[in-house]
């Protein structure tokens, strides 16, 4: 297992170079001149525009820009935003908030998704199963902005149970509502995946054996059926963590969460390569680590699977 983990960590090196190069190029290739937008449609003296371009190396060809970026990276300098802040500071401020939000959302979808999925699977075709199906449909078809707005309005304004937006410092309590909204769409996936796996596995031979051995129903379900049904669920959740961190733009907007999603979105719109590359690199790291954890979990969930 240790060599397996080490191998994975070594693989990070080419992944990192590949990702930064690709992302840097993509931002470079987006249409429009970032400096033209800085003046907000008002006049800008050409000398000022040129000075700004030079400051951000935008007057250099692509390879030079990328090389200069890598050079700074060696000394742990992630570059500057167009507002003159260190990208590392910006990410350091946004990352803890986003990490808390994503972990909460992941916990919500994992816990509720698996519980609902198990019951829906065990009672396939019954009222509970159909109710869960319709509820998850609702989550898929109704856009996040609607769900977010309605929850925010009802809980935050009408009932005053929670603050409608996240206050300074982003305390855990304020993040519950956004985490619920963020976790909802993926919840539909987790429920359906768990349900299907349960249905597949509950008629498996080993379940019959376990039941026949006289094991309690709970033990059969939790240890035998569930454990063997979790592989697709774990796979999904592992890949979802990163998406929750980088793709929470709508939810972050509704609840005014100063997180990574919005940071990334704004940086893309502005063509701020340094920020985009840094955020994406962090996300790649999250995906690689989550994937590693998932693979380790495979072996634990199903001992027949060998790590190579």
């Amino acid at each position: 297992m240790i060599t397996f983990t080490l191998k994975r960590i070594l693989q990070l090196i080419p992944v990192f170079f590949g990702a930064t190069l690709l992302v840097y190029f993509l931002v470079f290739a987006t249409p429009g001149d970032p400096i033209a937008a800085l003046s907000g449609g008002k006049p800008m003296s050409p000398a000022v525009a040129d000075a700004l371009r030079a400051q951000y190396n935008l007057d250099q060809p692509f390879w030079v820009q990328y090389f200069l970026y890598l050079k700074n990276l060696v000394s742990f300098d992630l570059g500057q935003t167009f507002s003159g802040q260190q990208v590392s500071d910006v990410i350091a401020r946004a990352m803890p908030v986003t990490a808390r939000l994503a972990v909460m959302a992941l916990a919500i979808e994992a816990v509720f998704g698996v519980i609902f999925g198990v019951f829906a699977g065990l009672k396939k075709g019954k009222l509970f199963d159909s109710t869960v199906l319709v509820a998850s449909l609702l989550v898929i078809a109704v856009p996040t902005f609607v769900l977010g707005f309605v929850l925010q309005f009802v809980v935050g304004v009408k009932l005053s149970w929670a603050k409608p937006t996240v206050s300074s410092g982003a305390p855990w309590g304020d993040l519950i509502l956004p985490a619920v909204v963020l976790g909802l769409v993926s919840l539909a996936y987790v429920i359906r995946l768990t349900r299907t796996s349960i249905i597949e596995n509950k008629s498996a031979d080993y379940v019959r054996t376990a039941t026949a051995k006289g094991l309690s129903r709970r033990r059969v379900v939790v240890v035998h059926i569930l454990r063997n049904s979790l592989i697709p669920v774990v796979t999904f959740l592992g890949a979802d963590l990163g998406s929750l961190m980088g793709g929470a733009i709508v939810t972050e907007g509704i609840f005014n969460v100063p997180g990574i999603g919005n940071l990334l979105y704004q940086a893309i719109l502005k063509g701020e390569s340094a920020t985009v590359v840094a955020v994406v690199s962090v996300l790649v790291l999250v995906f690689v680590i989550a994937n590693l954890v998932v693979d380790l979990l495979y072996a634990w969930l199903d001992p027949r699977i060998r790590l190579v």
């Binding site: 992302v23 793709g247 985009v276 996300l283 790649v284 995906f287």
Partner: peptide
């Protein structure tokens, strides 16, 4: 892993 991390909007 790389594709996962690429923002859809940028792409």
């Amino acid at each position: 892993d790389i594709f996962f991390a690429l923002p859809l909007i940028l792409g």
